[in-house]
Amino acid sequence: MEFKNVGNFQFRKADYPWLARVKVRVQGAGGGAAGADAATNELIARPGGAGGGYGERLIDAADLAAVESVVVGAGGTAGTTTAPGGAGGSSSFGGFVIAPGGDGGTANMDSGATPVTSNGIPGPFAGSGDWATGGGAGGGAIRLNGSWGLGGAGGESHMGHGGFSRNSSGPGTAPRGYGGGAGGGLSTGSSEGGMAGGEGIVIVELYG
C-alpha cells in the first residue's frame, strides 16, 4: 500500500490478521527554491533545494504496535523573489523509519552584473532504518554578468529527481517523482517565481 498524500495517517495491524512482516520504504520531501527579480540589465540566479532523505526496514508483525502512525512530508514551499524556498517535511513510519526532508534554496544573491556565486544547499543526513541514506545537495547558482548565469539544479532523492538547472530567465523548476528538490529561478530583468519541492511518500509492503 502507498501513503502518498501529505499528512498524518494510521496503519492498523488488526486489518491484516494474516500479516507476518512488513517492509516499509520511506521518502522525505524535497526543499523548495526561490524565485528572482533582477533589475533591468542585471541578473539574479538562485540555488536549488536539497532532496529528501530515505530509509527502509523489514519489520516483524509481532514488533508492530496495534496502530502505527504514518507521516508523509510536504514538499518545501516555493520561495518568493526575495525569500528562500521552504524546507521539505520529514516522512516516517512509527518510530521504525524516519526520513528527513531537504532544506530549501537560499535567496541571498543581490541583483547585479558582476561575477558572483551562491552556495549550494547541503543534503540532509540519513535518517533511520535497516538501510538509510541522506538526500542530494541542491546545486549552487552562478552569475557571469548581467545576461549570463546558471540557476542551481534541485537535489536528487532515492525516489525522485531534482528540478533542472536553468540558464535563461524563468521560474524555479519542478522536481519529478518523490522527494526531489526544486531547481532555482533565474531573472534577467523580469519577475520570476520560485518552485515547490517534491512531496514525500511511504510505501508499506505486506507479507504473510
Rank of each mutant, 00 (worst) to 15 (best):
Gly177Arg: 06
Asp15Gln: 05
Ser169Arg: 13
Phe96Tyr: 14
Ala38Cys: 06
Glu42Gly: 00
Gly35Lys: 05
Ala132Arg: 00
Thr117Ser: 12
Arg166Asp: 06
Gly135Pro: 05
Ile98Tyr: 07
Asp15Glu: 15
Phe93Gln: 04
Gly200Tyr: 00
Pro100Arg: 00
Gly177Val: 02
Pro124Asp: 00
Ala61Lys: 08
His161Ala: 06
Met159Ser: 14
Asn108Arg: 10
Gly189Leu: 12
Gly51Trp: 09
Gly172Asp: 03
Gly163His: 11
Ile44Arg: 03
Thr106Asn: 08
Tyr207Trp: 11
Ile201Asp: 00
Trp131Pro: 02
Gly134Leu: 04
Gly112Lys: 03
Ala137Glu: 09
Glu205Gln: 13
Asp60Gln: 09
Ala29Trp: 07
Gly162Ala: 14
Ala182Tyr: 11
Lys23Leu: 11
Ala174Gln: 04
Thr81Glu: 10
Met1Ile: 08
Leu58Gly: 06
Val67Ile: 09
Ser169Met: 05
Arg46Ile: 10
Gly189Ser: 10
Gly198Asn: 00
Gly123Ile: 07
Gly208Phe: 14
Ser191Asn: 09
Gly163Asp: 03
Ala126Cys: 12
Gly179His: 01
Ala141Lys: 08
Gly138Ile: 01
Leu150Ala: 11
Gly140Met: 13
Phe11Val: 13
Gly31His: 03
Gly31Met: 08
Ala87Asn: 15
Gly101Ala: 08
Phe9Tyr: 15
Ala66Ile: 06
Gly177Trp: 09
Gly184Pro: 00
Glu56Gln: 09
Gly120His: 12
Phe93Tyr: 06
Gly197Met: 11
Ala45Pro: 12
Gly180Gln: 05
Val116Gly: 10
Leu144Gln: 13
Gly94Ser: 07
Pro115Cys: 03
Leu19Tyr: 07
Gly86Tyr: 09
Ile203Cys: 02
Gly184His: 12
Leu58Gln: 12
Val6Leu: 02
Gly28Leu: 08
Gly162Val: 04
Ile142Ala: 05
Ser165Gln: 11
Asn8Gln: 15
Ile203Asp: 04
Gly28Asn: 05
Glu192Phe: 03
Thr133Leu: 09
Gly136Ile: 00
Ile44Gly: 03
Thr81Gln: 13
Gly138Asp: 15
Gly139Tyr: 13
Ser111His: 13
Leu150Phe: 05
Gly177His: 07
Gly134His: 12
Arg25Tyr: 15
Leu43Trp: 00
Leu43Ile: 11
Ala78Asn: 07
Gly189His: 05
Pro115Ile: 02
Gly120Arg: 02
Gly28Phe: 11
Leu43Glu: 00
His158Cys: 05
Thr40Asn: 08
Leu206Cys: 07
Asp37Leu: 14
Asn108Met: 14
Asp60Ile: 01
